[in-house]
């Protein structure tokens, strides 16, 4: 049995919001993937726009590398506004 390709589905709920990942579908080609995504993920007005992306086109970071990928920012607290002292008299900044 040939495996039908897998596609990741992204839905924009309304204009002004980003497309958000909602799940995946199997389909032979992009047209059928869009059709299947519509049937499976938008039966109740969940969206105004759909993206389907071949799953094997997504490059993901490895959770095992989480420490070296993301921890260095943990010590860089000077990237946050609360690191800096502004006298109260100055007011909201």
């Amino acid at each position: 049995m040939t495996n039908t390709p897998l596609w990741e589905v992204f839905v924009r709920a309304r204009n002004g919001l980003a497309h958000k990942h909602v799940g995946s579908v199997h389909a032979a080609d992009a047209t059928m993937a869009l059709q299947a995504a519509r049937d499976v993920y938008t039966r109740r007005g969940e969206g105004l726009s759909l993206w389907v992306v071949p799953s094997n086109a997504i490059v993901a970071s490895d959770p095992a590398d989480r420490a070296e990928m993301f921890e260095p920012t943990g010590s860089k607290i000077y990237r946050h506004p609360t690191f800096y002292e502004v006298p109260e008299e100055v007011g909201h900044m």
């Binding site: 040939t2 039908t4 032979a28 080609d29 059928m32």
Partner: peptide
């Protein structure tokens, strides 16, 4: 149907 869809995709 599944076979035809895959064959069509390959042809395209």
């Amino acid at each position: 149907v599944r076979e035809a869809a895959l064959a069509h995709a390959a042809k395209q």
